[in-house]
Amino acid sequence: MARTTDAHRRRAGRVGRRVALYAVLIGLSLLFLLPYYIILRNALSTRAQITGFQWVWFPSHPDWSNLADLLHASSPVLRAMLNSAVIATVQTVAQLAVAATAGYGLARIGYRHANKVFLLLLGTLMVPSAVTFVPTFAVVAALGWINTLLGIIMPGVFSVFTMFIFRQAFLDFPRDLEEAGRLDGLGPWGVFLRVVLPNSVGVTVALGTISFIWSWNGFLWPLVVGQDESTWTIQVALSTFLNSYNLNLPGLFAASLLSVLPVMLLFLVLQRHIAQGVKMSGLKG
């Protein structure tokens, strides 16, 4: 008898603990989703509904005109979105290409000084990039790339960190596969392009999505180099609207919603890869 009450109590304790756990998790989830809900609500509300004294949870007649106003040919928001798409895509692809080839060279080509070159490159990670943004601006200005997309893209292409991750991945690559490629008459580049890369899709997608999101969301560098409206990224455009004298509140949130959508889609589709990429980035120091 005593034993059953004991078991009962233990089970009740476990159930109670689970209820508490889920209560905490659901509460936190609502808190974490709140900002996204605010973006959506504000984007579909009128100014009066957003700032009205009566709190409106969700407009009964969503105001799609905020979004529609952004979607015309001469819209600065669309222009900025396009700039961001070009910058993030080119930067990501170029970064992967440069980092993967260098990573492979360092991992597999038995050059005498490979280690010295590797350590020299790795040493540059010691200097925080945002701290050198003034002299990097000087270099980009000397190249005549101020107010060009190229100026925004190029300094972000050469990521020693991405190279480092690729090198680690290639060090673990099965040598037998490479050997088989060599027996088929492939040179080092052939082995790299036809054997190693096709079998390294996981790490490439992981690093690529992370890089794309960081590039899309980046703010300081595009603000410094792309001051002209024609080179605004979506983040610079949003910041300019946010800090303008005659702020269009629903318009700001409609544009925010538009800017978040592509990344959100990418995020939900590739979440597993992104998580993988984050785990690898966790090594960064």
Binding site: L25, F32, I38, Q235, L238, F253, M264, L266, L268
Partner: peptide, 25 residues
């Protein structure tokens, strides 16, 4: 589900989050 919910702010930019914090929250 919970992991996705807590992870999803990673998709948001500082600029957009700043707009929400400053203008609404």
């Amino acid at each position: 589900i919970f992991r996705t919910i807590f992870f999803i702010p990673t998709a948001c930019s500082y600029v957009v989050a700043s707009a929400v914090w400053r203008m609404s929250l």
